[in-house]
Amino acid sequence: MSDPAINVDGLVKLFTRRGQPPVRAVDGLCFRVEPGVIFGLLGPNGAGKTTTLRILTTLTTPTAGVAQVAGYDVVAAPLEVRRRIAVVIQASAAELLLSTRENLLTFARFHGLSGQELRRRADRVLEQLGLTEEANRKVQDLSGGFRRRVQVAKIFMVDTPVVFLDEFSTGMDPILKRSLMHALQEEAHRGRTIVLTTHILSEAEELCDDILIMNRGRQVARGDLTSLKLLSQGVYEVTIAFDELPAGIDSALAALRPLRSSVNGHTIEIALKEEESRVLDLAAGLARLGHVRHVDLSGASLEDVFIELMEES
């Protein structure tokens, strides 16, 4: 087995405030991430994802345990770690007084790039991220979505073996997000390890080879999408589109005690944990309430798994 890109063992981070008991933001976390993998760190607000990322990116030190990135310990050799990572932090971060191009050049200079190679890469990344027209505009004059785009563009300027993305798609339009996800998958194929946190579970479902779900600083589940979905065996999603939403649908849905349900226009979506034959009966019962245009039945999504795990933990 190759050396892991990331190795975390017994990681603990305590936050202490005077007069209050310490908060265990990260509580004995252990995981390894292999090179070339897109790794998703998922969890609700306050789960400890960002704190874990802050430790791995040398922004804060752990209270106990080991965290290594590209073979280097984040406490003993933080500079070696920084030489091997590119980070998109959760908050918007850009050089507002500089142009889009200068933002890319400035970042890459810190990673040792210079001369023709630097400029060539900047041109390529500007093109790749659809920023060519904004290349010479100051970032302070760009919209929030474009600023985020500039922030994310920087990771494509360098070849660091590990990339950290904290909620990278915030404020991005769906078309750009899709092309960016494709670009991230290409980077992973080239051998870069991508670690991301996101609240958008469909994004993680599509992108991540390996997922760790955490809550209250601890691991709740770990695995690829298929193995995580097995945790929610017996969970089914039912989607029914009606011509007109039938009267009394709300009470009918509530009576089924679904894991979750939503009504969008004339379409209902519910997640049920039942035997397959029973789910079919229940879906048929709902469909009889009105004139149906379309019915869809599928297995659990990552969102179902996530919600179930959070309720259990």
Binding site: T57, T58, L59, P78, L79, R82, R83, I85, V87, V88, I89, A91, S92, A93, A94, E95, L96, F107, F110, H111, G112, Q151
Partner: peptide
Amino acid sequence: DNGIFYEMLTYPMS
């Protein structure tokens, strides 16, 4: 304010 301060702390420099 620009957020770049914390990002810069992850750049390869002490």
